[in-house]
Amino acid sequence: MQYPPFTPPSPQPFTAAPQGQVHRTGADPSTHYPAPRQQRPRPRLKWVASPPPGAVPRRRAVAAKPYDGPPSYPVPPRWGFPNLVWRRPTAVPGTASGEVRPIDRIPVLAQSLGTILWAFAILALAAAGSEVWRYALLVQSRDSALSTSVVGFSDAFVVTAGLLTTILSLLPAGLSVWWLIVARHAAADESGVEPARPVWQVLVGVLVPIANLPLALSVVSELEHSILRRPRDDRPKPSRLVLLWWAAWIVNWVMLAVTVVWRLRPGVQAMADSVVLVAITDVTAAALAILTALVIRRFSDLLMPIAPDRLRTLRVLKVDGAPAPELHTARPVGAAR
């Protein structure tokens, strides 16, 4: 098969055109071609000179020495750790070792507060007993005359027990609030989670009347939740002891309000009823003090480690039925010393 001979096309002349437009002669003048794009300058190259291979001598690799066993000394060494048990660092002024952590305050506060709360509970029960005695004398006076000395002693007992109970109630209340704040900081340090409420909300939820009735349960439940190191996103679930404490808390505050309002009423019957209400209020105060002492003791035991005197030392006295241990006469090669 033969192909026709190739004939190159004849060049076509170009004519002048406006700037930015080029067209060929003989073509349609209305056909315009875009102007050629300007070329961007290439980025400059950075030349880095490096020494040729072999110009710099290589460092010789140090061969690892074989293990020759534990170190030995020609004479007993004169250095070492002191023959002492672990102890806290010495308190140096101006350093962090001089600061007392909140966890270190818990045992002292818990022990002192527990003693004060139990003493207050006994005093409150004594005040309640004096009110019961006064009510019994009131019932007896309806049918017969009373002895002057008995009535005077009963009045003195009631006034003394009532004043001591009212005044000394401020001491366990203040110490309990202090222990609550310290326990919150200690639980936050141990769990690594910041408390859910600031301090001012805790004070409002415990000290402000009416508002402290529902908020006291939330404050104590959040403290128990933090001490037990439960997840922060979970809702606090108070234990049975905390619920009993909250019930005593509400009953005591309600009885205190009812007693104050009832004493403002005139009449002999209102005075007799006030004696009964005061006795019930003293009993609820004693119950609240006892439950508070139990809650503080439980939370303090959870925060603090177990005391050494509460642990029983166990010893192996005899082993029956165990096979005789295998004796190794030689130490295998590569075994740890």
Rank of each mutant, 00 (worst) to 15 (best):
E190L: 13
A161C: 10
W178V: 08
R263M: 15
I280H: 00
R230H: 11
E194N: 09
D233N: 12
Q19M: 12
R101Y: 04
I167G: 08
R331P: 14
S300W: 08
E194Y: 10
G205K: 06
L170I: 09
I280G: 02
T166F: 15
A156P: 10
R240M: 12
A248C: 06
W246E: 08
A145K: 11
H185T: 11
R312D: 15
V182G: 04
Y33G: 05
R229N: 06
D301Y: 09
I250L: 05
M1A: 12
Q269A: 14
R337G: 15
L264K: 10
A186Q: 00
Y3K: 10
P198S: 13
S226R: 14
A27P: 00
D234L: 14
P13N: 13
P77L: 08
Q269K: 06
S50I: 07
D301M: 11
P52M: 13
L314G: 11
E194W: 14
Q140V: 08
R298T: 14
P34W: 03
F14M: 08
P198A: 06
A16S: 14
D233P: 06
A270N: 04
R142E: 11
W262V: 10
A35Y: 04
A286M: 05
G129V: 04
G174R: 03
F6T: 13
A110E: 04
P13Q: 14
V62F: 09
H23I: 10
A35N: 05
V242W: 03
D28C: 02
A188M: 05
V75M: 11
E326L: 15
D233E: 11
R310D: 15
W249I: 02
W118D: 09
L117G: 09
L288V: 05
L84F: 01
I250F: 01
P13W: 09
L215D: 01
L228M: 13
D320A: 07
A127D: 15
H225R: 00
G192F: 02
D68A: 15
A324G: 10
I290W: 15
M271P: 04
V182W: 01
S218F: 15
V242Q: 03
I167D: 08
I296W: 02
R88K: 13
D273Q: 09
R60H: 09
W253R: 12
R40C: 11
G267F: 00
Q21W: 12
D233H: 08
G267W: 01
F299I: 11
A279Q: 00
S130W: 08
P41Y: 01
P66V: 02
R40G: 15
T259N: 11
S141F: 12
R44D: 12
R42P: 12
G26M: 05
A128P: 10
P9E: 06
W249A: 03
P11K: 03
L215Y: 13
I103F: 06
V151Y: 12
P308H: 03
V75D: 07
V92S: 00
R142K: 12
P266G: 14
L84E: 09
P51K: 07
R298Q: 10
V158I: 03
R298N: 04
P43A: 02
A96T: 14
E326Y: 04
A286E: 02
L256F: 04
P76V: 05
G80Q: 03
D273S: 07
P66L: 07
P266S: 15
A121T: 01
L317H: 05
P332L: 01
